[in-house]
Write a protein that binds this DNA or RNA. Structure first.
Length: 421
RNA sequence: GGUGAGGUGGCCGAGUGGCUUAAGGCGCACGCUUGGAAAGCGUGUAAACGGGAAACUGUUUCGGGGGUUCGAAUCCCUUCCUCACCGCCA
């Protein structure tokens, strides 16, 4: 959520930048500022009346002691009138505040000036490509064939007990998954991130804090009886640790492994085959909270960190700077990581590293004290390091031989085996 | 799930309708003191939204929401949470 004050200060610039996100802010900004003017006016009036009424009350208190009951009665009458009048302005103020908030949640975050113009994912900018597609033997398979042949994942079994999009990992397939989780967590811990193992269900306030609610209500599983939501990413619980907090020590670097749950309503077809899109999947997330002046350095640091993991796994990948049309509602700048999965001959998104600037912090009321002792909003950043299923798919597709799958060196200490036959 | 006790500032904790402008303590910051430190003494120390060039100042906030009252941390209703014991249970 943007701040009205900043919209007032940077109106023209924001309108220009939001055009990159294909969002026409002109009318909504004007409306917003107008409502905010009205709000201030109502507040001034309301405060004035309440001040008078507070004054009368304390006078009444003193008069009771002197026993001047006539005077008390007349002051009471006066006070009731003032109080009634103040309620009119208070209601007006509350109504305007609600209207302003309703508008604010409709406005996406301001994109960073470097965000390229574009309509869709086709316009994303490739900023780095480290992709020697492996030379596979003739007749190399996509992962859904490999997982079946080597008994790594039983999609049918998941289908039976839950539904499609809920795979069951078995034997070495399960061990490989567990190895990847441990490996990612260790990489993150070694880079200075503090590990958390958070709850997988969050309350409504947390959903709102990270902007999952109300925007993506339909994408989250909801436990009706207790009014809790299954997390779509660890970003939700972890970022909400810092809700209503004034941070005074930086850096704040968190990592967490969690399963993630997404309804993915409306997805179908080839894109959802095998591990490509699931309702439940594992992900290791990194989250950082920083002061505004450092946040873009931190974003680069996070991009470097994710790159180093993919380097070590020897996976071909590329980094995309998302264009305005593909950038998420809440993000100011996002780098996507895609690995090349040679069995499918496809790029698969495995990580998305974003700077949200103060867009989330404003909802979260996440602040720090600046050098003048004033409270300012922090910047929040997060990224996947990494999302498991597509890494898994690319790993087994890229490392297949006609009769085996080779485990990359970096993982062998975690799997305890170097080949799957 | 049942019964009971609670929820007050960064933390502890007093506070049963107006002497609360939330006591007192701890912590923190600054100053005095010191060769330096500790102790001691003094001063300051919440947030949000407003007004004001500034000094300063108004309103709101004692878990959340609603109510009674001229006036609520205090009384009433409601809801959430915590703790204790009981029940159930990995």
């Amino acid at each position: 959520m943007l701040q009205t004050r900043k919209i007032r200060e940077n109106k023209a610039e924001y309108i220009k930048l939001l055009k990159v996100k294909n969002f026409d802010a002109n009318n909504i900004f004007n409306l917003l500022i107008d409502l905010d003017d009205q709000r201030k006016e109502a507040q001034i009036k309301c405060d004035e009346l309440l001040s008078k009424s507070n004054n009368l009350s304390s006078q009444i208190g003193k008069l009771y002691k002197t026993g001047d009951t006539n005077k008390v009665a007349s002051l009471k009458k006066e006070s009731i009138i003032i109080k009634d009048e103040s309620k009119i302005f208070l209601n007006k103020q509350n109504k305007l505040e609600r209207e302003i908030k309703d508008l604010l949640v409709q406005i996406p975050n301001i994109p960073h000036p470097s965000v390229p113009v574009g309509k869709s994912d086709l316009d994303n900018l490739v900023v780095k490509q480290k992709a020697e597609a492996p030379a596979l033997y003739d007749g190399a398979k996509p992962h859904w064939d490999l997982t079946e042949r080597y008994g790594l994942i039983d999609f049918g079994l998941g289908n039976k007990i839950t539904g499609s999009g809920f795979p069951v990992y078995t034997n070495k397939g399960a061990k490989l998954q567990r190895a990847l989780i441990s490996y990612f967590l260790d990489k993150n811990i070694n880079a200075g991130y503090l590990e958390y193992l958070p709850p997988l269900l969050v309350n409504e306030a947390s959903g709102f804090g990270t902007g999952s609610l109300p925007d993506k209500e339909g994408q989250m599983y909801h436990v009706n009886e207790d009014n809790l939501y299954l997390i779509p990413t660890a970003e939700v619980p972890v970022t909400n640790f810092f809700r209503d907090i004034i941070v005074n020590e930086f850096p704040v670097k968190c990592t967490a492994y969690t399963p993630c749950f997404r309804r993915e309503a409306g997805s179908y077809g080839k894109d959802v085959r095998g591990l490509n899109r699931l309702h439940q999947f594992d992900k290791v997330e990194i989250v950082q909270i920083e002061r505004p002046e450092n946040s873009y350095d931190i974003l680069n640091e996070m991009v470097e960190h994710v790159s180093s993991i993919l380097d070590e796994l020897e996976l071909p990948y590329r980094i995309l700077k998302l264009c305005g049309g593909d950038l998420s509602f809440t993000s100011a700048l996002t780098f996507d990581f895609e690995v090349y999965s040679a069995g499918q001959k496809k790029w698969l998104e495995v990580s998305s590293v974003s700077n949200f600037e103060d867009y989330q912090s404003n909802r979260l009321k996440l602040r720090y004290k600046d050098s003048n002792g004033k409270n300012q909003l922090c910047h929040t950043l997060n990224g996947s390091a990494l999302a498991l299923p597509r890494i898994y798919a690319a790993l087994i597709e890229n490392n297949q031989t006609p009769d085996s799958i080779i485990i990359p060196k970096a993982l062998q200490a975690y799997t305890g085996f170097d080949i799957i036959k």
